[in-house]
Amino acid sequence: MKKMFLPAFLALFVSLISQPAAATLRIFACEPEWGALAKEIGGDQVSVYTATQAGQDPHHVQARPSMIARMRRADMVIATGAQLEIGWLPVLIRQAANARVQRGQPGYLAASDYVQKLGVPARVDRAMGDVHAAGNPHIQTDPRNIARVAAVLAKRLGQIDPAHAAFYQSRYQEFSRRWQDAIARWEKEAAPLKGTRIVVYHKGWNYLNRWLGLIQVGALEPVPGVPPSTSHLAQLLSKVKQQQVAMVIYAAYQNPRPSEWLAQRAGIPAVKLPFSVGGTDSAGDLFALYDDTIHRLLKAVGKSAGSPDREE
């Protein structure tokens, strides 16, 4: 019995520590939009673990033990970068001790490195709140950024898994075609939104604003990362009334109450936007994310094909 035990234990140990013949690439996606993109490009050649969900504030995520375990075996990490995950990703990468996903490896992809960032502060001071020195990291609010990241992702997947490089490229080509068509459609649909004045909860919509031509008049957070105070809200309310603001926008993960408070007093709609894949029931994939975002915005200005009811 004893003689049987040792080889059996050794076999178990070896099977534990050696990677099984890589059937699929393990992708660790920090946010749902990158998880969804990895599925679009990787198809059935990748298995995707998404560390957070759209209901979570990506600035404040706890480095859970389960994430360390997933990071340990990941072949690739897709993060937003630009210091969005600075409070949790570095400690995960350090604890997981995985050579494949270290910074500088093809298995570490920071999406925001490949787009032109908005809102890079000329000066950084914590009195300005939780500012991102590298620029606004919420790049996923503009689908043209997704297109740029998709190209990089396809290349990286091919680098890590050369046997399927052609597969990833063809999937990317196919995705890219559908995506460009969708962008054209969205731009046409969203044309009436151009010049709409908005107030946001957190300065997380710079890229969306630029894409659709929305004009951001103010933010509920007095400085990024600091919850809205009553005095600041009162100030903002008078500004909203003066400047003909059409709506208040907040992300699915944010507390709706301050936005609703302001919207109610100003007599304008408060619009909850999905912000990421899964943020609302209808934003089930990348395409639906923008479909739903534009639908909700149009509805708020009363220009959708459907009822011009107020949102939420």
């Binding site: 990677q19 375990a69 075996r73």
Partner: peptide, 9 residues
């Protein structure tokens, strides 16, 4: 760190 989906260290 054990290569399992459950954290084991």
């Amino acid at each position: 760190l054990a290569p399992t989906d459950t954290f084991l260290e």
